[in-house]
Design a binder for these strands. Structure first.
Length: 795
DNA sequence: AATAAAAAAAAA
């Protein structure tokens, strides 16, 4: 029995409490408004909002919430309090809808049950999860208690049950080819609408400052497009003033831009933008997105980019473009984003929570892990994806082992949620349906489902061709390092990219031996060097390339620039060498490597040499990619190994051979209709747990003691702060600059050898001990045998 | 018996 009116949240500092009736009404209205484009989902969201916190009317919960408010006085949480409150609403939904709509009502209630029961703990499996949990409650008692708490009658029984026909429920085929995760995505959107509304209404009560900061005048897309066009016009004028309009590259860039604007008026759907490196993709894709959004009433543009290093460059470009409209137009959402540490209510920080901004720039990990997530915090942004333009940059990096669920979800966003998808890359993956015997192969895009933005891709590639690729006569027989070293030596400006960190080390040492003692102009790059170290070396290399070019232009003697690297330079690092060597790898990797060659088009043709290193790439996808590439090149003769049709063939073969849903995500998300229980069974928890784009179960991070004149901060000082004050977020982010990822088996040896120890303050995080043998100032962390140890050269 | 690089990390 309650004394007084039920509350949703206690008042702050003696202020008035948040009334539960009001919270439910507000969440219902807000959740419904999030799904205006989907009438059935909108009305279910309204009901979910009204009922999600019914359990809070129970006496036990009201006692709990009031005692928590006083807990800081008592210094402990009260005994016998009951804070679980998400079941009552789910039980109420089933009872009420069944009473009012019959069996159809129960089916609709099943949808609400996932959403309401999960609004705190996250979406769960039906079998072995939600089903059992709901059955474990005494429904009659639970609901009686909630009614006693005095909810306003219209909350329990809304006068208008404006529910469209059950046929609207996306259960199965519904006239289009079946995609198993269709219902799951639709339901997740509903979940997103509810939890975001719940978060927002609670925030409005708890921290009005934050709610205030969220309010921003919605900028119409026409306004963004206008500012963008002005920027592009100024840029074109500058090119003209410099008298460079008629260079082949600038002419082609202008054509790409024009094609993007022209095709943007086409119907919403899936588009590909296939443009070689240097074709002006970053701005052209934005031109497409804005023009399309304005034309078709899309609400926002979401740019998805695989690596944070590329994001920072891209976001900086967009920031400059939209600067006349203020700082809040472009929101960068990723782990490295510089959010203002002091301002809890910074709009940029708040917008990251639910992607409520006109232009979002984010990582593919953020996007895809959110699309398969079960947690409230991760899902709340999803409803804001509906009716947006989603641009996926570097589309060739879509994760092969999750390709099937990823392609499914992209197609569903387009079909059911008003999204237009643009796949951008220089090496377009073949995502059309390739069903093979035995059910293998990709269930992908059908004929006519995808529109190419560039009409004459082959012509564009021919016009922008800047390299000649040389294949070895024999792609099957590995060559010893001495052969590669010998081929590299005559080149004074050369980049060699290998597939293994140990290879980078070995080739570097080999070149060093060939060169005179103390010779300058040789660098090593791999992820065994910490990010700070890598940044400094890359900066040095860029400076050396500039110095060399200037010296040659003057006719002076120039320092050589030789770099041995792993594939870390292939994405987002804009080095430019006249000659590039690449160890046999996936065709897309080789194409990326070729993108580092004659990048600025200073030479008539750059030279790219593919070689077969002594050791095959590690087993798994990398090896499969290299083998597939060799197969596609077999009999290639003197035709271009990177021609468009070869890229298409490569992806066709790769996807035909690879496991495209290694974790069984599609099956977990497939709707199983249990007619007896009238249940809609989906395994949300399993899918979410299995969807991990970055697998780090065998990896550990070691903070190394890297020092240089250019380090802004001293690792030792940071580590002392960590040991004294524990892992603050800002501190961990700074330390990330000095982290190296190594494998567990190496870690064990290093710990045993006393080179590395675990930090008691952060279990699972390791630091280099004061001994400095572990980290070499040139090649970084020493793992897998000492340098020059003959054992590391053996099979 | 070996393994590139990549990202993220708090809820109402």
């Amino acid at each position: 029995m309650n004394t007084g009116i039920a509350i949703a949240h206690a008042g702050q500092g003696g202020g008035a409490p948040h009334l539960l009736d009001e919270h439910l009404r507000a969440v219902a209205a807000l959740a419904a408004s999030h799904l205006n484009h989907d009438p059935l989902a909108r009305e279910l969201a309204r009901l979910a909002g009204l009922w999600h916190d019914l359990g809070k009317y129970r006496t036990g919960f009201q006692r709990y919430i009031r005692m928590v408010a006083e807990a800081h006085i008592e210094g402990r949480l009260p005994q016998g309090s009951d804070k679980s409150h998400s079941a009552a609403g789910a039980l109420w939904a089933a009872q009420t809808l069944k009473e009012r709509l019959g069996p159809q009502g129960l089916v609709l209630a099943r949808v609400l049950q996932y959403v309401i029961a999960g609004h705190h703990a996250g979406l769960d499996n039906w079998e072995g999860g939600l089903k059992g949990r709901l059955a474990g409650f005494d429904a009659a008692r639970e609901l009686a208690e909630a009614r006693q708490g005095g909810p306003a009658p219209e909350l329990l029984a809304p006068a208008v049950l404006n529910l469209p026909d059950l046929k609207q429920l996306p259960l199965g085929r519904n006239g289009i080819e079946e995609i198993p995760g269709r219902f799951a995505l639709w339901l997740r959107m509903l979940f997103s609408a509810l939890v975001d509304a719940d978060f927002l209404d609670t925030e409005a009560f708890m921290s009005p400052g934050a709610a205030q900061a969220r309010q921003a005048d919605a900028l119409p897309m026409s306004c963004l497009r206008g500012v963008f066009d002005d920027y592009m016009a100024r840029k074109a004028e500058a090119v003209q003033a410099a008298g460079q309009t008629d260079t082949p590259v600038n002419r082609r860039r202008a054509e790409v831009l024009a094609a993007c604007r022209a095709k943007a008026t086409g119907a919403p759907g899936t588009y590909t933008l296939t443009v070689p490196t240097g074709g002006g993709k970053t701005l052209a894709s934005m031109a497409f997105a804005l023009t399309h959004a304005e034309r078709h009433g899309k609400r926002r543009v979401v740019m998805v980019i695989p690596y944070t290093s590329i994001i920072e460059q891209t976001a900086a470009v967009y920031r400059e473009v939209f600067a006349p409209l203020g700082d809040d137009v472009v929101i960068e959402h990723h782990s490295n984003a510089e959010s203002d540490e002091r301002d809890e209510n910074a709009r940029s920080r708040l917008a990251c929570e639910n992607w409520d901004a006109p232009v979002i720039v984010t990582t593919s990990v953020q996007l895809f892990e959110s699309l398969f997530a079960r947690r409230t915090s991760r899902c709340r942004k999803l409803h804001n994806l509906a009716n947006s333009v989603l641009v996926l940059d570097e589309a060739q990096l879509l994760p092969v082992e999750y390709l099937q669920p990823v392609v499914d979800v992209l197609r569903l966003l387009v079909r059911d949620h008003g999204v237009t998808v643009v796949l951008c890359t220089a090496t377009q993956p073949t995502l059309t349906s390739q069903p093979l015997f035995g059910g293998k192969g990709l269930r992908g895009y059908g004929p006519g489902e995808v529109t190419a933005i560039i009409d004459d891709e082959a012509g564009l590639y021919a016009a922008l061709q800047r390299v000649r690729v040389h294949l070895p006569a024999d792609l099957k027989t590995p060559q010893p390092w001495s052969v590669t070293t010998e081929a590299l030596m005559p080149h004074e400006a050369v980049l060699a990219i290998v597939s293994r960190r140990a290879d980078a080390r070995e080739l570097y040492e080999g070149l060093k031996r060939e060169l005179p003692t103390g010779a300058r102009g040789l660098w090593h790059l791999s992820a065994l060097m910490c990010p700070q170290h890598r940044s400094e070396v890359i900066a040095d290399i860029k400076a050396a390339l500039v110095a060399r070019r200037e010296a040659l232009a003057r006719g002076d003697e120039a320092e050589p620039v030789r770099v041995v690297s792993t594939q870390l330079v292939e994405a987002g690092v804009d080095l430019d060498f006249p000659v590039v060597f690449r160890a046999l790898a996936g065709l897309d990797s080789v194409a990326q490597a070729a993108g580092r060659c004659n990048r600025e088009g200073r030479l008539a043709m750059g030279e790219v040499h593919v070689f077969v290193p002594p050791k095959a790439p590690p087993p798994g996808l990398m090896r499969q990619a290299a083998q597939t590439c060799a197969r596609v090149w077999d009999g290639c003769g003197d035709r271009d190994p990177l021609a468009l049709e070869r890229i298409a063939a490569y992806f066709r073969h790769l996807y035909a051979d690879a496991e495209l849903d290694r974790k069984g995500i599609c099956e977990a998300l497939r709707l199983q209709i249990d007619r007896q229980e009238q249940a809609l069974a989906v395994r949300f928890r399993d899918a979410s747990d299995a969807f991990r784009l970055i697998d780090d179960k065998d990896a550990a991070t070691v903070i190394v003691r890297y020092h240089s004149a250019r380090c802004r901060e001293d690792v030792n000082v940071l580590l002392r702060m960590l040991e004294r004050d524990g892992p603050a977020r800002w501190l961990m982010r700074k330390l990330q600059r000095y982290g190296v990822t190594i494998y567990q088996h190496d870690l064990k040896k290093l710990v045993a050898g006393g080179d590395v120890r675990e930090l008691p303050q952060v279990p699972g995080l390791y630091v280099q001990t004061e001994s400095d043998v572990f980290y070499d100032p040139v090649v970084g962390a020493q793992v897998g045998g000492a340098p020059g140890d003959p054992a590391s050269y053996m099979a």
